Amino acid sequence: MDGKLQRLIYVDDEPDIRAIARFVLEELADYQVDFCSSGAQAIEDAAGFKPDLILLDVMMPGMDGIETLKRLSAIPQLAGVPVVFMTAKAMKHEWDYYRSLGVAGVISKPFDPMELAASIETIWRAHHKLREAV
């Protein structure tokens, strides 16, 4: 595995969701997190922040999560950084489509705050197992 998960970018346009995630991810799970309110902000911050993983809301005004993913994927410094979609769209065909875009995982919204860090860690470990197997 490529080390311990420490640095995350969390992209969500909803301030209340970011506040809950901030408490859980920074205070309880002790991650270093750059919270972004838009895809544009994530694109601006990502390379300089050097995240281990990116959490990305699918439905955002302006630039949605899918377009943000495409633009982040084009940044050379982010090659290999896993992206996890956060979405209220929980239909199997939607999740299959998201995975076809290359995301490492999908977490349903609303998420259980007390399970968020564990869900992220599970996806992180599975992603690195797949990479090691290749």
Rank of each mutant, 00 (worst) to 15 (best):
I20K: 00
V24I: 14
K89M: 15
V83G: 01
R131T: 08
Q41V: 10
S38V: 04
Y31I: 08
S38W: 07
M91F: 03
C36L: 08
L78T: 01
L130A: 15
G102P: 10
L78P: 01
A19F: 11
I54N: 01
K4G: 02
V84R: 03
D57M: 07
M114H: 09
Y97I: 02
I75G: 04
D2C: 05
E26C: 14
L78A: 10
R18K: 13
I20H: 00
E115A: 14
P110G: 06
V83W: 02
E67G: 01
L55T: 13
F111Q: 09
D2G: 08
D30L: 12
L130W: 12
S73Q: 14
Q32G: 03
A21Q: 04
Q6G: 14
I43Q: 03
Q41F: 00
K70T: 15
A42G: 05
L55K: 06
P15I: 10
D45G: 00
Y98M: 13
G62E: 15
P76C: 03
W95M: 13
D34R: 10
M114N: 11
P61H: 03
I17A: 12
I9Y: 07
E14P: 00
D34Y: 03
K129L: 13
P113H: 06
R131F: 01
I43W: 02
G39R: 04
Q77T: 11
F85G: 01
L55P: 13
D30M: 08
K70Q: 15
A104F: 11
V134H: 12
M114F: 08
S100Q: 14
S108P: 12
P15Q: 11
D34M: 09
Y98V: 04
A29T: 02
K70L: 14
L28D: 08
P15A: 12
A117C: 11
A74G: 14
L69Y: 07
D16W: 06
W95E: 10
A117H: 10
A88V: 10
E44A: 09
A40S: 12
A88S: 14
Y97C: 03
E27C: 06
M60Q: 13
Y31R: 07
P15C: 11
G39L: 07
L53R: 09
R125G: 01
A40M: 04
D112W: 03
M91R: 12
V84D: 04
I43G: 06
V24G: 01
M1W: 11
G39M: 08
A126D: 14
S73E: 10
C36V: 08
L78H: 07
A90W: 00
H128A: 05
L130Y: 11
R125K: 15
S73R: 15
L69S: 02
G62N: 13
I66S: 07
V84W: 03
S37K: 10
E44W: 02
